[in-house]
Computed example of a mutant assay.
Amino acid sequence: MANGSPVITDFRIGTVNVHSFRHPETSKSNAKELASILGPLNLDVLAVEEAMNDYDWKLLCNDLSLTHSVFGASHGVSYGNAIASRHPIVEHFKQKSKIDADGGYRAMLRCRFGGYHPFVQNRRFAVTHLDHLNEDDRLTQIKEFSPHNHDINVLFGDMNALTQNDYSDKYFGEIVAGKREKAGWEIPRFELTQLLTNTWSFQDAFRDVNPKLKDEQVATCPYGTRIDYIFLHPLSKDEWLLKECFIVDTYQATDHHAVVATFEHKSKSENNIENDT
């Protein structure tokens, strides 16, 4: 490397539903436990859903060395979505849904980062948590938030939505559709993820990197389904490539697993290929 050339490091992002920072079984704070799980991952950006804008959120940010944060309420003033980062937040916008769905009000938080890491330049991030009861309401909410029209490049979220090719026929019949039928929930539908990927051209980071994983291997919630996502809309002539995307077991500290994605610069990827040949 030439003298004075900056080291271009990988960039890692993650998302998790923190369950109001309460352990699902004990109802005690789960912030420290989540910090111990996520800490070794060295995240540059963390987006969370079902967050409380309180001491636990500040504790999690501090323990993960994410010194910049922004919160966007969906219910009242202290419950909603939040984003924390190692990089300054130079712009943010909180958008609440105007529809009164049976599952409650929802919101999207958008932001843009500053600083010197080249990954954040001209890239917009957003996080949302969509309705948990009804696909029609989810569709109305995501259309209202309109991430494609706001030039969102990285969309995090607990979408409460399914992707059809996540499941084998047997697993789908017994676990996905079967459990829902017994519980009297909505039948499985896939319009939300199809809208994002097929119509709005977002990439499903986890599915793109792990095309063969199915069934319990992809589950992010206790019901055996994948409902937590990182969607990508790369920049024109993007110099950053998706390197990996994986699910992180939260060991029941919350009722969702985390999803993490890592990006590397094209020059580093090309050097790796040359070294392998």
Rank of each mutant, 00 (worst) to 15 (best):
S74A: 10
E33T: 08
L213A: 12
D249Q: 01
N134D: 14
D137A: 12
F11G: 09
W57M: 15
L133Y: 12
E191Q: 14
Q194E: 15
N153R: 03
P147I: 05
G173V: 04
L59R: 06
G157C: 02
D158H: 05
A107K: 03
D255C: 01
K243P: 00
Q141F: 02
E274G: 00
K58A: 10
D56Y: 04
V7K: 11
L46N: 03
L59N: 01
N134R: 15
V77H: 02
G80I: 03
H87P: 00
M159F: 15
S146C: 11
E91R: 14
R226Y: 05
P211Y: 04
W57V: 05
K143L: 09
W240L: 04
H257Y: 03
M1P: 07
E25R: 13
D44N: 15
C61N: 14
A107H: 07
N122L: 13
L232R: 01
E33Y: 00
M108S: 12
P6H: 08
L59I: 11
L155H: 05
Y167N: 02
K214C: 14
I83M: 10
E144T: 05
S65R: 10
L133I: 08
Y116P: 00
I152G: 02
N3F: 11
N275M: 11
R138N: 01
H265L: 06
L43F: 14
P234Q: 02
I142V: 10
V248Q: 08
L133D: 11
T220E: 03
T254C: 15
Q95R: 13
V127L: 02
Q141E: 13
S74I: 02
P234K: 07
C61D: 12
A126L: 01
E135Q: 12
P222C: 13
R123P: 01
A51N: 03
A51Y: 06
P118V: 11
D136V: 09
Q203K: 07
N160H: 05
F202Y: 09
I89E: 00
V70H: 13
D100C: 13
S36E: 15
A35G: 14
V16R: 09
H148I: 11
N275F: 03
E49H: 10
I83G: 00
I142Q: 01
D151M: 06
E244L: 04
T225W: 03
Y251I: 00
K268F: 12
S36I: 01
N3W: 02
I89G: 03
F263R: 03
F263S: 02
A261H: 05
Q217K: 15
H257R: 10
D100S: 15
V248P: 10
D158S: 10
I83N: 03
H87A: 11
H148S: 14
E181I: 11
P24F: 14
A73V: 00
Y251S: 06
N210A: 09
H75E: 04
F206T: 01
C111Y: 06
Y223N: 12
L162Y: 02
D151E: 08
V260H: 04
G184Q: 11
E274R: 15
I227K: 06
V77Y: 01
A73S: 14
